[in-house]
Design a protein around this nucleic acid. Structure first.
Lengths: 188, 188
DNA sequence: CGATAAGCGGGGACTGTCTCCGTTTAGTGC
DNA sequence: GCACTAAACGGAGACAGTCCCCGCTTATCG
């Protein structure tokens, strides 16, 4: 997983600058921020950007891995603090909020749970699925969640709920209301 | 609503050809089909396309109004055939299926229920909201639907569910399962 | 049949993606 | 220090898409 050969100093510098600039750009302009523009703002040529990150997906993922990891960690914390059913509900809430608040993350999380996409097996997809699986299984064991749903279903539905709240443009606390509706439907 | 002055014959011909070609193109390539390409395939210049349909939205809407109207009509039929609660559930099913099966329609329906968009007041948005309002109110009166949801919420959630099923790429009858989960959560 | 305004259409400016390849430079052994 | 080499750079340019502008064409009407 880690670098076999250490990167050259200039390469590493550019890589890091790109990541920083990309996170800003995606936050500012959403997932469709101009890549050449990101390269320009990072003070590198577009060739350099595309060498480090062959696809928009790759850059998006690299820019947000830490946030994804944080969500996965959060799943563990909630599992330790709350009863299984509540832990799942609370995590879904935080997941949806994150999906919407951090512009650009929605596209990333969406592709992470898309079936049939080649890019399906990525680091963040694995993290998310792992976290969801633990919470879902615990909730099912505790009898707080119907047994006919898979972790991936829960992730997809969360993505759907985030999409729905997005349509409401944050009107009337829609995220919490919609998540509540979802968890109502998921209850055993 | 109707044309104040009748269109010139050539204008009407082009308008109609564009509509036909656009429906095909959107069905084939999704909502992002190239507009210049549609113009070319219809045998007109791009200027002509943009004059008739100033935005992609406008073309999308014009190409699919009939399908939207059909859905609205279907709402009426279901309301007459089934008890209020079931009518709503069945309609949501058909709505979601349509949203996914007809490529390009998702974008249109999505923007129809987006809050804060300038394009919000369009013919298809009005139809959808009307149909949803009737079904939702009837279901609430019959005690089959929670009273704390608005018709627009239902439409948005349906859109979310369609998005979720789309992520599953039609695997395992996901549409019906997800709609069932949604309606479970919506029950009074 | 002409006049005329409605309508046409494609050239071109612009923005974005992504590749290719000549040039630069970090790292290494001496 | 110095020279060598492979790694890395960067930006020009091919390509695709959007959208506007404006000189030309043509349907329609008196």
């Amino acid at each position: 997983m880690t670098q076999v050969k250490p990167m050259r100093a200039d390469a590493r510098r550019n890589y890091e600058r790109l990541l920083k600039v990309a996170a800003e750009a995606f936050a500012e302009h959403g997932e469709r921020a101009s890549l050449d523009d990101i390269a320009k703002r990072a003070g590198v040529g577009s060739g350099t950007l595309y060498r480090h990150f062959p696809t928009r997906q790759a850059l998006l993922e690299a820019a947000y891995v830490d946030r994804i990891e944080a969500l996965a960690v959060r799943a563990g914390e909630l599992a330790a603090e709350l009863p299984p059913g509540e832990a799942l509900v609370e995590w879904l809430n935080e997941l949806c909020v994150g999906t919407i608040q951090v512009r650009g993350m929605k596209a990333l999380l969406g592709s992470a749970v898309t079936d049939g996409s080649v890019a399906a097996v990525t680091a963040c997809a694995t993290s998310m699925k792992g976290a969801a699986t633990r919470l879902v299984e615990a909730a099912q064991e505790a009898g707080a969640l119907r047994r006919d749903v898979e972790p991936i279903d829960v992730l997809r539905l969360a993505h759907g709920v985030a999409t729905a709240s997005e349509l409401a443009n944050g009107q009337g606390e829609s995220i919490r209301r919609y998540v509540a509706l979802l968890t109502e439907g998921l209850r055993a």
